[in-house]
């Protein structure tokens, strides 16, 4: 939950994913273990923070499919489901926290 300028400076510990925005439409994507991108957090590569640096490096080299990759925290739900680790990441995954105009 901090600006992108600060995202990369922030030390993230615990379990993490590498996330970015898809180039063509800006959709939130997560890096998979086989160096692909997915919009499904459950399919993302979940790593311990130090190991994620390598995944991030490879994601940064992939500048055509996704923009601005960074390491984001995750946590685990009761059923061991991967969940975003803070409010900013929850909003990125689920969208705005209110009903969008005209959608009610």
């Amino acid at each position: 939950m901090t600006s992108p300028h600060e995202q990369k400076k922030r030390k993230v510990s615990g379990s993490v994913v590498v996330t970015a925005n898809r180039l063509g439409d800006g959709a939130v994507v997560y890096r998979t273990i086989d160096d692909d991108w997915t919009t499904d957090l459950a399919s993302a590569a979940v790593l311990a923070a130090p190991a994620a640096a390598v995944l991030l490096q490879r994601a940064e080299a992939d500048g055509v499919r996704a923009v601005g990759p960074y390491i984001a925290p995750v946590e685990f739900g009761a059923d061991n489901r991967v969940l975003p680790g803070n409010l900013r990441e929850r909003i990125r995954l689920a969208g705005p926290t209110f009903t969008l105009p005209g959608a009610a």
């Binding site: 925005n21 180039l23 063509g24 439409d25 800006g26 959709a27 939130v28 500048g63 055509v64 923009v67 601005g68 900013r88 909003i91 990125r92 969208g95």
Partner: peptide, 25 residues
């Protein structure tokens, strides 16, 4: 989109045309 421009090269151009990249889009 073709990869001929990097994001660093493109960012300043898109910003000159009112295009920001926000959280989801």
């Amino acid at each position: 989109l073709s990869g001929a421009l990097t994001e660093d090269e493109f960012k300043i151009l898109r910003l000159m045309n009112g295009v920001y990249l926000q959280l989801h889009a």
